[in-house]
Simulated scan of single mutants.
Amino acid sequence: MIATPRFAIEQALRKVPFSMSADHVHQAHEIYYLLAGERYYYINQRVYALQKGDLIWISKHDFHRTSNKGSGSHERILINFDEEFAASSMNVSPSSDQNQLLLPEKSFLLRPSAEEQCELEHLFRQMLDEYHQEHAYRQLYLQSLLLQLLIRIRRIQSATADTIAPERSEKQQRVYSVIAYLHAHYDESLSLDQLAEHFYISSTYLCRIFKQTTGFTLVEYLQDVRVQQARAYLRETSWKVTSIAEKTGFDSIAHFGRVFKHLTGHTPLQYRKKYKKE
């Protein structure tokens, strides 16, 4: 069976503080545009501070999540699409050089000018209107709008001297060091006191700055790193679940099962079975 090219767009307004409970990854590309408010956007161990009019390109396979910043009220537009959908708009194969040039491999943050924001928002409104209607040639029109959007993003990016860097205050640099340590030592028995001692700071201060920077508690983040690795082992090896639990730092198979299901919605065996079917 040939899969239908995938495209989705949605606009959401949240009037209360909201943070995603865990980071996640897609098999498709994602465009996030902040219409109003402020957000923290976490991508691959770095935190970006978004303001109104900012656009984030999230490349497929990059782990990401958003968390609260400022008053908590915000409005955003989110687009997900696969390479086949983008390629169809140009009548080329998904792996062609022409298609790849329009689809950046690395995630980045753009801060468009006021004029550029107006142009982008006009395209978003057209996409939203078309997406929620059942007009003739709907998919073709959405593909043409996506092509215009991708070209516009690339033009803005090429005209920008430097992409917007992640947050890099002294506090955040310290948190990035902790994050790197967790990714390197997730398979070990780690405690808050051990981490605080290793980085020569108090456990209370470490907890506070980690939560402020990432939106995670230390325990939540470590569990998330371990589950990410466990998912890879379940997909790529035939190891027993008990072995995977041990190799990812969990103290018991029961604890591993509870955390894995909480973060993925599946038991480890269900996840492995689902992945093999796909």
Rank of each mutant, 00 (worst) to 15 (best):
134 E>N: 12
194 Q>V: 10
40 Y>I: 14
135 H>F: 10
118 C>W: 03
133 Q>R: 11
103 L>A: 11
139 Q>T: 07
163 T>W: 09
268 P>T: 08
203 S>K: 14
164 I>M: 11
73 S>I: 12
256 F>G: 11
129 D>Q: 14
94 P>S: 03
263 L>Y: 11
74 H>A: 08
25 V>Y: 03
171 K>H: 05
167 E>H: 01
155 R>D: 13
105 E>L: 07
113 S>P: 11
59 S>Y: 06
113 S>A: 01
87 A>S: 06
39 R>G: 01
35 L>R: 08
131 Y>T: 12
142 L>A: 05
145 L>Y: 05
274 K>Y: 13
120 L>K: 07
267 T>R: 03
42 Y>E: 00
202 S>M: 04
273 K>H: 15
224 D>Q: 15
101 L>Q: 05
9 I>E: 04
170 E>Q: 08
135 H>S: 14
105 E>V: 12
68 N>V: 04
144 S>H: 08
236 E>V: 00
178 V>D: 01
195 L>D: 00
14 R>Q: 08
175 V>D: 02
32 Y>E: 01
220 E>C: 05
223 Q>F: 12
124 F>K: 08
195 L>S: 01
277 K>D: 01
270 Q>R: 15
259 V>C: 07
165 A>F: 07
21 S>Y: 04
87 A>Y: 04
10 E>T: 13
86 A>R: 02
172 Q>D: 13
150 L>H: 06
178 V>M: 01
38 E>Q: 14
127 M>Y: 09
145 L>W: 10
158 S>V: 03
61 H>M: 09
255 H>S: 07
30 E>K: 00
190 L>D: 06
8 A>R: 14
202 S>F: 11
245 A>Y: 02
243 S>E: 15
143 Q>W: 11
39 R>F: 00
28 A>P: 00
102 L>I: 10
26 H>N: 12
215 G>A: 09
48 Y>F: 15
196 A>V: 00
97 D>P: 14
278 E>T: 15
141 Y>G: 00
106 K>M: 06
96 S>C: 09
70 G>S: 02
261 K>A: 09
151 I>S: 04
151 I>N: 06
108 F>E: 01
